[in-house]
Each structure stands twice: as C-alpha cells, then as structure tokens.
C-alpha cells in the first residue's frame, strides 16, 4: 500500500470519527479534534519558520551583502519577539508591552489606510455610481446603505426624566436599515448552509468512494 493510499484511508477514518459527533460528544470525535489541533500546530510552526523567519534571517543576519545596518535591522524583530516571551510571565509581563505597542502602532496605520482606500472610498463610489447605471435599483441600494448605517447611529437626546430617545427621523430610517440588515443576515445564513451542505456532500461522496473502491 502506497503512502497516498494510507493517507486516504486515514482521512476516511478521521472523517467518520468527526461525523460520529452527530450521535453526541464521544471519545472518537475528541481524539480526531486533538489530532487536528496537534497537526495544525505542527504545520503552522513549519510554515512560520520556513516561509517567514528563515527568509528574514537569511536576508539580513546571514546575508554577506548585509552591513552592520542590515544586521541591526535583522535583530530588531527577533528582540521584539523575545520581549513578547515575557508576556507569559506575570512579573516581567510589562517588558512585552513595548513589542505589543509597536505591533499595534504599525498595525493601526496599516488598518487605517486599508479601511479608507480599500473599503470606504471604493464602496461609497460604487454606491454613488449605481444610481447612474440603474435608477430604481441604484436608489434602493443607496437607501439601503444609508439606512443600514443609520441603524448603528447611537447618538440620542436625553429627556428630563433621564431616559434617552433618538429622533423620529433616525428611528424611522433605522427601522428601514434593520430590514436591510435582517435580509443580509438571512442571505449570509443561507450561504453558510449551502457551503456546509456542499462540503458535507463531498465528504459523503468521499466515504462512499472509499467503501465501494471508486
């Protein structure tokens, strides 16, 4: 039996072990899940070392072309990683805050630019131009976008008795936004059902093929 055949039979056994959860939580399901987590941890380690860390070390610390500046730059992320290691200690945990602060600072800038140039501007432009392409549907689309955003409008006026209330206009448009949100969530739910149904039927096909030798 070749290595591939052994792998396919192992996949068959693990698929059945996972599907045994339909009958309730049991030892077979748990074994399969722990194997999954263990394998995933191993693969993530390999990919992280092979594709991220080693190329960086080769390109900076071990590169003959890298001068003192290259070596310093190469060491910085490794030092920051070392500082992160302190986060596991209750006493020295604060030392890791510098590394966290660096990641959050740079990550925030990237997220900010990404949100504006990747989502805000393109979606606003696409919604605006949709009205020119198809007046009725484009208008409905723009109305849906505006009302959905209004639904998340939490500013309200405080009344003399201490309670808060949003204005009538915001409440009305927000209610329309709720309609669009419910329709969207229903569509996402149906998409999730269809996706999992497709994967489930593929797995059933795999099990049948293994049993019948197809």
């Amino acid at each position: 039996m070749s290595g591939e055949q052994i792998g396919l039979w192992a996949g068959f056994v693990f698929t059945l072990m996972i599907f045994s959860y339909v009958l309730g939580d049991n030892i077979l399901y748990r074994i399969a899940v722990y194997v999954f987590v263990g394998l995933a941890a191993g693969y993530i380690t390999i990919v992280t070392v092979e594709s991220v860390l080693l190329p960086w070390i080769r390109g900076t610390l071990l590169s003959p072309a890298a001068g003192i500046g290259g070596i310093v730059v190469g060491i910085i992320p490794l030092l920051l990683g070392l500082l992160l290691l302190f986060k596991t200690s209750p006493r020295l945990g604060r030392a890791g805050n510098i590394a966290i602060a660096f990641i959050i600072g740079v990550g925030t800038a990237v997220a900010l630019v990404g949100a504006v140039s990747g989502t805000l501007l393109p979606l606003a432009a696409a919604t605006g131009s949709a009205v020119r392409v198809d007046v009725i549907n484009g208008f409905l689309l723009a109305l849906g976008v505006i009302s959905t955003l209004t639904y998340f409008w939490y500013l309200a006026r405080r009344k003399p008795d201490g309670t808060t209330q949003r204005s009538l206009l915001i409440r009305t448009v927000g209610a329309l936004g709720q309609f669009f949100i419910i329709v969207t969530l229903g569509a996402l739910y149906s998409g999730a059902i269809l996706t999992s149904l497709t994967i489930f039927s593929e797995r059933i096909g795999f099990i049948v093929a293994r049993i019948t030798g197809g």
Binding site: G7, L8, G11, F19, A32, S196, E202
Partner: peptide, 15 residues
Amino acid sequence: SVQVAIESALAGLVL
C-alpha cells in the same frame, strides 16, 4: 489526506 479531511468533516458538521 488527514488535515484537510478533518477540516472538511468539521466544516460539514456545521451544517
């Protein structure tokens, strides 16, 4: 064969 099989089975179970 193993990792992808377990992943797919778990995704199928979500159904």
